[in-house]
């Protein structure tokens, strides 16, 4: 328990260790810790930013979905309207077409009737002439009796 040169030795050792610690131990460790701190802060920052971005994107997506639903409904409504319009048009057209066809057919029929009547008239006059000739025993001069024949035909 004597005080002696050991004190001096210990003092020198202390100075040496402090110097070494100051030069080679403290700065790299502290700078590594600070760097990591900065990195972690950066990471946390990025994470919160990403979360905000995600929220934003989600709300935007929801909005877009709502909008597109709305648009789809509009389109469907328009399509329905258009469809009924097309159907109406088609009905109208077919009605017109049908009327036209009916009119044409009636005209044809009228025409046919007239022609048949004309034929019939002609044949009747001929038949009358032949009958008269038979009755009179001689041929009737058709040309001489034409006026009579025509009169007959008109009466028929």
């Amino acid at each position: 328990m004597n005080m002696n040169l050991t004190v001096l030795g210990q003092l020198i050792a202390f100075a040496g260790f402090v110097w070494f610690c100051m030069k080679y131990v403290w700065p790299p460790l502290v700078s590594a810790m600070q760097e990591r701190q900065a990195k972690i802060a950066e990471g946390l920052d990025a994470a919160s930013r990403a979360a905000r971005d995600l929220e934003l994107a989600q709300s935007r997506a929801a909005e877009q979905l709502r909008e597109s639903k709305h648009q789809a409904a509009e389109i469907i409504e328009q399509a329905n309207k258009r469809a009924s319009q097309i159907i109406d048009e088609a009905k109208e057209q077919s009605r017109l077409e049908g009327e036209r066809l009916v009119a044409a057919a009636q005209a044809d029929i009228e025409h046919e009737i007239n022609r048949a009547r004309e034929d019939l008239r002609k044949q009747v006059s001929e038949l009358a002439a032949v009958g008269a000739a038979k009755i009179l025993g001689q041929s009737v001069d058709t040309a001489a009796h034409q006026r009579l024949l025509d009169q007959l035909a008109d009466e028929l």
Partner: peptide, 9 residues
């Protein structure tokens, strides 16, 4: 000696 060395430092 050991403790006084550091304390004197």
């Amino acid at each position: 000696n050991g403790t006084f060395g550091v304390a004197i430092g």
